[in-house]
Design a protein around this nucleic acid. Structure first.
Lengths: 229, 229
DNA sequence: TGTTTACAGTTTACGGCGTTAACAAACAAA
DNA sequence: TTTGTTTGTTAACGCCGTAAACTGTAAACA
């Protein structure tokens, strides 16, 4: 029942395995993750890891869930710290999103890239964590809407229906319009980041920093966000 | 000099290896590509393949170059066939882009996803092929600009400079404004497709077909394209 | 036409991988 | 102190990419 001595050690080992795996993937790429190498680097033999994770995919799943939550934590922290008017706060969170992706490319592509083989992470684990990210953007957009800094979008009827189920029956969060804008606004953001992470953006646009800042402001302004005041 | 008998057989074998590899990846995912399995499926032993490709990465590179060109060919064909006003023609090519991505998910993620390990395809091969795709969009947008169906965008000065080098010294292709719009418009398109291909879009938006059509029209209209007349 | 040469394929081998089975030591609970 | 559980080991299986050495066979040339 209470956390016994052995349970603590076990929990620490579970974490250490993930840490070493992350470190190894940062050095050699997501697909190179090798249980034997992880074990070796921990001074263990490979079969010992099977006491902690039933197989390699289970370890990857754990890493993915961690990555999702780390990103959402990072965004929440950025949102909490952000000051100034709506535009400044919104762009601060957008910048934090890109910042995390560039700082943790392996985790980001673990989440949003093709995560090793035909493997698919279990929905019940990843979808809620992924929703947190959208929820943060939606919350900010709700503030913008309330302040009149964001134009009311016209949400298609069929989409309203789905967004309501997405919002869940629980806590009364952002209005549909905010959720809608966060989803649509996610597309160019995600597109830029995926291209940048896989080095397809730099040869096309030259200065990726400037392109990101410019394009995001440009598109979001055209979507009806007042970012300047 | 002329294509001798043996050269023809060799060329056919090079193609067969790629075909079998594509087929195997379609069945088991990009990272599962196994030289031994390809050889087995061709009635050969694994080392025999080394007469044709110096190693596994070389084969993957060949597949990537093929995929780039297949996508560009597909877009050019769609453009050639497209009729109607500017908006209809433009959206037809956009739809063709998505159509190809969904019909050839493995090739698309070979191009734009993380293509196995820390491996990077040689720039001198992939960049020109990738540029073809943008060039087709830019050409269409140039027509739209000429017809007054596309608003003149304000291109940032630093970006003008880079876009001119990108356009190359060769043939006088689309104007800078068209190139600019094609690059910016590529971001949401790519974002949607990457999310859809990795199954992150469906849980969020429900009907991916409707979402794609709606969002693309929405964003491009806001970017200043007149799609309706 | 007969000889040489280049090529396409083989077998064998090395070291690495994920994973399973059988077993030993350390430890917790009785 | 004994018993049972947990954590680790070694050995083994069948994959993988790749290299070396070797063998026929088809093309090129005398």
């Amino acid at each position: 029942m209470t956390a016994t001595r052995r349970d603590q050690v076990r929990a620490a080992t579970l974490e250490e395995i993930k840490a070493v795996a992350r470190q190894q993937m940062a050095a050699s790429g997501t697909a190179d993750l090798s249980l034997r190498a992880v074990a070796r680097s921990m001074g263990l033999t490979a079969p010992a890891l099977y006491r902690y994770y039933p197989n390699r995919d289970a370890l990857v799943t754990a890493l993915i869930v961690d990555a999702f939550n780390a990103l959402a934590d990072h965004l929440e922290a950025a949102q909490a710290v952000a000051t100034g008017n709506f535009g400044e706060r919104f762009m601060a969170v957008i910048a934090a999103y890109r910042g995390w992706a560039l700082a943790h490319p392996v985790d980001f592509q673990l989440i949003y890239g093709n995560p090793i083989i035909g493997y698919e992470a279990p929905r019940e684990e990843t979808v809620p964590a992924a929703s947190r990210n959208l929820a943060i953007l939606a919350e900010l957009l709700a503030e913008g809407l309330a302040e009149g800094k964001v134009e009311q979008p016209r949400v298609p009827a069929w989409f309203v229906q789905h967004l309501e189920t997405l919002r869940g029956p629980g806590r009364q969060s952002a209005p549909i319009e905010a959720l809608y804008l966060s989803v649509v606004g996610w597309m160019p953001l995600h597109g830029i980041l995926m291209l940048e992470l896989f080095n397809h953006l730099q040869p096309v646009v030259g200065q990726t920093d400037a392109f990101f800042a410019h394009t995001m402001c440009h598109l979001y302004t055209q979507m009806g966000l007042n970012l300047s005041e």
